[in-house]
Design a protein around this nucleic acid. Sequence first.
DNA 1: CATACAGACATAAAC
DNA 2: TGTCTGTATG
Length: 718
Amino acid sequence: MDITDILDPLNEAQREAVTVGAEPTLVLAGAGSGKTRVLVHRVAWLVRVEGVAPQHILAVTFTNKAAAEMRQRIEALLGYPTRNLWIGTFHGLAHRLLRIHAREAGLPETFQIMDSEDQLRMIRRMIRSLDLDEHEWAPRDVQWFVNAQKDEGLRPKDLKDEGNAGRRRMIDLYARYQRLCDEAGLVDFGELLLRTLELLTERADLLEHYRARFKHLLVDEFQDTNAIQYRWLRLVAGKSGIPFIVGDDDQSIYRWRGARVENLQHFQRDFPGTRIVRLEQNYRSTATILNAANAVIANNASRLGKNLWTDGGAGEPIRVYAAFNERDEAEFVVNRIQDAIAAGERRRDIAVLYRSNAQSRVFEEALLAAGIPYRVYGGMRFFERAEIKDALAYLRLIANRDDDPSFERVVNMPPRGIGARTIDIVRDEARRSGTSLWRAAAAVITQEALPKRSSNALWEFLKLVDRLDQDTRNLPLHEQVAHVIERSGLIAHYGKEPHGGGEARVENLEELVNAARDVIADEESDMPPLLSFLAYAVLESGAAQAGPYEDSVQLMTMHSAKGLEFEWLFMCGMEDGLFPHQRSLNDPEGLEEERRLCYVGITRAKRRLYLTYAEQRRLHGLESYATPSRFIREIPPELLEEVRPTMAVARPIYRPAFAGRDALPGGIRLGQRVRHGKFGEGVILNAEGSGAHARVQVNFERSGTKWLVLAYANLELM
DNA sequence: CATACAGACATAAAC
DNA sequence: TGTCTGTATG
């Protein structure tokens, strides 16, 4: 058997990982150490050398994009399609199981998935219907609470109020929300996982079946799994499954949305005899860049320990530029980008990274002015667009009339004279009789509880949806979609939107037809195409922007940069308060996560890295003065090179951090916690002036941010 | 029902 | 400061 194509491209550690026997394996894979390659080759090894049938393999990735890429690479290596090999995200796989076993899981066959926006709308509506104060019970907070519980695998009945009235109400809201979802046949992202877990826990026969099927469980980006995903993995693995997981504790940057790095440690505890393979050789960056990354991450206390190395050369020093303000920073970056392009660099190999999206603006303006094509990551995705969600809502109603959120979304879209008053009456009726809005609407019409005009309009809507359903029942999916966007009136509605704004929307709607054409049937779960398409639209929200092939400079947050690499990299806004972000300055765990994010950022760079910061920055409308990020100071100075502005300036460029602080009386420092008689507790953000005129900016927890004159404020240090 | 205006808010974002 | 949401107005 020829296995050279599997093993030859691998180094020794990679080869060890790919060829391990049937034992639980944990691959600690540093940035740029070839972890995707290891996963792909592991699958090929199992199939070709160990003779494992593809249906005995389950591979879990972090995103759909990664799943698609992995499947494609596996097929390229194996040389044939891998139909029975399950590859997907935890959510995608859970959805598949729930479709196959909807009945056993207590769901209607036509159940629909809600994205976070749908979920938020639903919670907001619920809070209103309960006449709760939306400030005290902010829908966002409730949503956060519900999702956090689900991520931990907890149902309302598992939660105790601990004698806390607020918590008791939260638990109650969670329970009510869940009831609403169940009644409407709706499943949120967390529910996909939780339901599946419960299904497999309760149904020993199913569990046994899937345990027998999925012998090999491969999980990528394991450091980003949450509690329930890990329980899921353990459950499916059981005693006989062989988990092969790949992760990097230093790249765990999603703690804030439930990811548990500890799962890496737990894994070793829960699967005794775990074989650990470390991939530490980096093929991406210069030694200088790697050393900087290593130096920064070394400041984190809780690590499994790992040191990246390369046999490549030192390369260039890392450039640090201190800008006057954010516009100077952008101008500097754009000038360097022009240099790079002039030197023959491709635009797509250049990226500008920042901590938060709001920072993109200045760079966009500067790039626009310079006429350099760029692409901003993030923002509105295809399936999140209003017109697309409208069209999907019609389709969802066709599939399931009881989908209340979809009903509310399009009952008056396009406008057909059904106002807030009418909807209120329908809603009241639904609540009174405990049915869906759809049924309530029909009831309200027969009861003649509405003015003639509204009643007719409502009747027209019900007829419309029924007609759309009937007329398209036997059409291929994409024709069904085309029919629906046309006959629902959405096309006409958006087409006549003023100032040509509707044109793009109409194009998007037409694009939806194409998307429907491309949907591939899932033979295994023999899901109806419409249901399959609707699920796809929620689970795979689509790229934020089209135009992929124009060669353009990449702008994105440090988070979105994970997994990517660039020849030239700019990390901007390297200021304490921006990066690390303000909200993590007082929290050691938060700070460690920021540091990991910095590590992720630095290790994206292949050849040249710039770190820039602005000494003065306009933020939320007011000027603030910043100190360079502590992360810059964590890089050994010999790896850095200051870049001076082209104009001569009569001041030190790379000011030592916290210069000027000494001038503040009373031992006050930035970041210091203080208490004020009236405003309560807060943190010093900024300071200016000295002596009797010294003022400090304090961010009070209760009263917001204020400038105070030190001499009068009587701040108590904490 | 569309548009204008006021007010709140401002970390990251896949599924 | 800019964006988004909700409400007031014509």
